Simulated assay, not measured.
Amino acid sequence: MVLTGALPSVPPMTENTESKSHSPRHKRDLTRRKVVIAGGGAVVAVGVGGTLAAGAFAGEKKQGTAATGEACYQLTSETTEGPYYIDADKIRQDITEDKEGIPLTLRIKVIDSETCKPLRNAAVDIWHCDALGIYSGYESLSTGGGGTPPTDAPSGTPTGTPTGEPPSGAPSGGTGGGVHEEPTDDERYLRGTWRTDKQGFVTFRTIFPGWYRGRCVHIHTKVHVSGTWTDAGYEGGNTCHTGQFFFDEEAVLASAEVEPYSTSTTERTTLTEDTIYDQSGTTGGLLKLKYKKNDIAKGVLATITVGVDPEATNTGT
């Protein structure tokens, strides 16, 4: 993988929810649970023994005594890459360009799900459709609904399924979303790559995504590690995570009352109906959202902790 673009300087972030693990590295637990060695005893991180308290960041669950301060996580679900990925075309934090929509600040913390340590200098990609369900680079193929579909849009999708983006491994519906479509245009809005800081954080500025036929509201992401940041961008390494972030129904319904989302004529797929989201909450990519309940148009803050296996390769294809 090669990411092109000038390497940005990344200012340090003030928030620090890093929790250090003192356990030795061991074989990864197939049940997606981490066992923390706190003092002389082993404590299962999720669901067994002890008191679980809400962490300072989305997806974090702290456990143990105040002295240990251990924090443990589950691996975040892997999903299909989808047909509209373009390999790290823009090295930037603000991916909005001139697209209209509700301002969205997306703050992601990337950690090693076994050691609980933040992953520094990882390259994080995000990409998503605009307020009317259109993807940059694929405007003529997207299945959004801002009134009248493009005249050259196919009756199905790039992979031949009846939904906007097919699920990986689906029993029916073609190739499963891992097949790249060649871009149809030079637009690159709502796409970008940035690197994590020493605490594992990366922040993007974008807009609240819209929806298109067959999918709930979502954002795609990839995490690349073990590569090298150069003046030209990011090179080498492996893609350790390919996933999607999701929005709760209350927020989506609120966004649907705001222009330009309110002009969409596309039938919306709900979170529970979606074929990609695995209904597991934060582990499945469900974002923690903050906004004014009666004025979502002012903007939304979305946060999540993404637990990855940096030694794995998960391309979503």
Score class of each variant (00 low, 15 high):
residue 193 T to Y: 02
residue 127 W to G: 11
residue 86 I to P: 06
residue 94 D to F: 09
residue 171 P to F: 05
residue 154 P to C: 08
residue 190 L to V: 14
residue 118 P to M: 01
residue 80 T to L: 11
residue 89 D to T: 13
residue 89 D to I: 12
residue 194 W to L: 12
residue 146 G to S: 03
residue 128 H to L: 13
residue 130 D to V: 12
residue 129 C to G: 07
residue 193 T to W: 00
residue 178 G to T: 06
residue 123 A to R: 02
residue 150 P to V: 02
residue 78 E to F: 07
residue 88 A to R: 06
residue 171 P to L: 10
residue 106 L to I: 12
residue 114 E to Y: 05
residue 58 A to T: 13
residue 192 G to F: 03
residue 158 P to Q: 01
residue 108 I to L: 14
residue 137 G to Q: 00
residue 142 S to C: 10
residue 166 P to L: 07
residue 65 T to H: 06
residue 185 D to Y: 04
residue 95 I to H: 03
residue 172 S to I: 13
residue 176 G to K: 01
residue 142 S to L: 07
residue 142 S to A: 15
residue 151 T to S: 12
residue 58 A to Q: 05
residue 130 D to H: 04
residue 190 L to R: 02
residue 58 A to I: 06
residue 187 E to Y: 15
residue 188 R to A: 15
residue 128 H to A: 13
residue 188 R to Q: 15
residue 69 G to D: 08
residue 72 C to K: 07
residue 101 G to S: 07
residue 141 L to Y: 05
residue 69 G to M: 04
residue 86 I to H: 05
residue 189 Y to W: 15
residue 56 A to N: 11
residue 167 P to H: 05
residue 81 E to D: 14
residue 108 I to Y: 01
residue 171 P to K: 04
residue 180 H to T: 15
residue 142 S to F: 05
residue 109 K to N: 15
residue 77 S to Q: 05
